[in-house]
Design a protein around this nucleic acid. Structure first.
Lengths: 362, 362
DNA sequence: ATGAAAGCGCTAACAT
DNA sequence: ATGTTAGCGCTTTCAT
């Protein structure tokens, strides 16, 4: 024990990386202030002399000091973490949304967690009071997952900020396109080409994690058709489960009907890809024998020249993250009262490629 | 101050959800043991009477108690978090890997973080000593990202377990296919069809986050060709950047060469899709005029009938997560000595569809 | 503007 | 087998 001067001798500008990490106390003694002042200075709180703050920051820097996240959390009760819950990470749509959110969150200094909530069980486990989500995260982004009213309000009560994509929860920021409009756009486009025999490949109806989207698109499509005097019913729609395979069998069913459609609206590009496969299988030419329109503008839509209704998915994720962070900030900083959570509605855009075309003059 | 009995009156079996969370102390007093015993009991540590453990667990359950992660972290220094660093979340390959890892990690009770490390800068920021990664995560999975030797050993020193996918770091578990073999497989397949004029679309060479993979595949392909008396050189390879667009322009360049290839090996399906687009653009029939083989078995490979070398990506992520957890466990539990980190080599499989076929008899 | 001190809820020696 | 007691590194009143 050569050095009895306990912890006080902390003036060492030892630059050798990776010893035991400097603590707030090391910084405090080195800067000749109290830990409280260091804490204030580092977080930009008021009541710190400019000179003092500067000194503290410099010392912290030279000591390679960073507040320990665990300690901060324990003391302050905030996690500086954002979690996104998605039905699945597989699938272009979800992973793209996640990518958009990740960039924003990490950029803003939040840790970014993701958790798969593919089933109702998984969803409930996450949202359930027993998971203590509020101790793990400050904010939650739910993608195409609709929490129950109780779950949503419980989250708020527990201090977890919520924002949704593809759904709308009162009191929470949301990002959601106008799905009715999407349906109408598709109908107009197809009918504009002279098609009168229409089919639609819908998303899942049976195990509805989020049936709102398919419903709205269907309703928009039906409405658009009706405006042109075309009446559509259940017999014109098949469920494709938002997957390639589903899209393919749905197409087969549609085409096997007594009066097969000459144009098909697939509610997602992935299902449209399945439709294309089935067409090829039957030696039907897309855009001439049968027209197909999808939704998303999936990265491979252009590979197969799919006409589709584009939405800017990555943007959705990024915007949601920003809205969430804003909501958390506002709510904390000043009078979070009279803060109206924005319901962002991204625009969509029809991009025509070659899988749609004039109705065959049978 | 109506109740002087301080904290002792904690026998309330109040079942109303979402009050202030029960702490370990609540459990302790309710179970009439000390907090230490609760801690032991809850974590399955030895030296707890079976009866006691049962009682504690029951009480904890009835109190809806969960240890506070932040408190555990602070006290124990472990985060129960696993982080995966990927060059990007966009792109089927990475998001699929992440999906595989996510499932395993959350299943095993780890929080799951993801962080994009698309550039050298981002990578270094994450791995740099100044980021204090060890305070945020117990284990790191790096996907197609090669840390420097110093970074890797620094991680170990700092207590962050590392496992890699698509790379090999000494002392760390890894998941990596035999990329040379992939190249050879492709060469054999193409040459087996009688092709002698070969082209290859490689991954990025200039900004090499991970040039090992392209190099190995190329070397395997060249070797395979050489075995059949075909000599290949730089002039037969173009960089496609692992993207659709890159694949397309690479293909164009290849086809515009004085002696254009009749068969092309694309190192990823995405680049192969680009190749297919270029073929279509030139009215060349895949599998008859020009053969294309990819790597991955991307979910849309079958949509366009792409012949490819399948690897089970999601599995890679899952296996990596399992190996990582195992490594962390072993290292902690018993004699972590003489633990040899496994280098898992998943198998690949050629799946032939219609984009490859006999060489045209020009 | 700054400091002292009391926790935050847990784990880990060290008793017993 | 169980209890006692220090911390872990911060934030946050409350003084000054």
């Amino acid at each position: 024990m050569p050095d009895p001067s306990s912890t006080a001798a902390a003036h060492v500008p030892s630059d050798v990386s990776s010893g035991p990490r400097a603590t707030i106390e090391d910084v405090a003694t080195a800067a000749r202030v109290s830990v409280a002042t260091v804490s204030r200075a580092m977080r930009g709180l008021p009541n710190v002399a400019a000179a003092t703050r500067q000194r503290v920051v410099d010392v912290a820097q030279s000591l390679n000091y960073r507040p320990d996240p665990a300690a901060s959390r324990l003391a302050a009760g905030k996690t500086k973490t954002i979690t996104v819950g998605v039905p699945s990470l597989n699938g272009w749509y979800f992973s793209t949304v996640v990518a958009g959110a990740e960039a924003v969150c990490n950029e803003a200094g939040y840790e970014f967690q993701v958790i798969g909530v593919g089933s109702h069980d998984a969803r409930d486990r996450l949202l359930d009071d027993r998971y203590h989500l509020e101790r793990r995260t400050d904010g939650l982004i739910l993608v195409d997952v609709e929490p129950s009213d109780e779950q949503a309000s419980a989250l708020a009560r527990r201090g977890v900020s919520l924002t949704t994509i593809g759904a709308r929860i009162v009191g929470c920021p949301s990002v959601q396109i106008d799905d009715e409009h999407v349906g109408r756009l598709a109908a107009d486009h197809l009918i504009g080409f002279g098609h009168r025999d229409l089919g639609v490949i819908s998303g899942l109806d049976d195990d509805p994690m989020n049936f709102a989207v398919p419903m709205a698109r269907r309703s928009g499509f039906f409405g658009g058709a009706a405006a042109h005097g075309i009446t559509l019913g259940d017999e014109h729609v098949r469920n494709g489960n938002f997957g390639v395979d589903g899209g393919r069998v749905a197409t087969a069913e549609l085409l096997d009907a007594p009066r097969p459609p000459t144009a098909i609206f697939a509610m997602s590009d992935e299902m449209a890809f399945g439709a294309l496969m089935e067409l090829e299988h039957r030696a039907l030419r897309p855009g001439v024998d049968v027209s197909i329109i999808g939704v998303d503008d999936h990265e491979f839509a252009r590979v197969v020249k799919l006409t589709t209704i584009r939405q800017t998915i990555a943007e959705h994720g990024a915007v949601a993250a920003r809205l969430l962070i804003e909501a958390m900030t506002v709510r904390a900083t000043d009078a979070g009262v009279d803060y109206v959570p924005p319901a962002h509605q991204p625009t969509v855009e029809l991009v025509q490629r070659t899988t749609t075309g004039p109705a065959p003059t049978s």
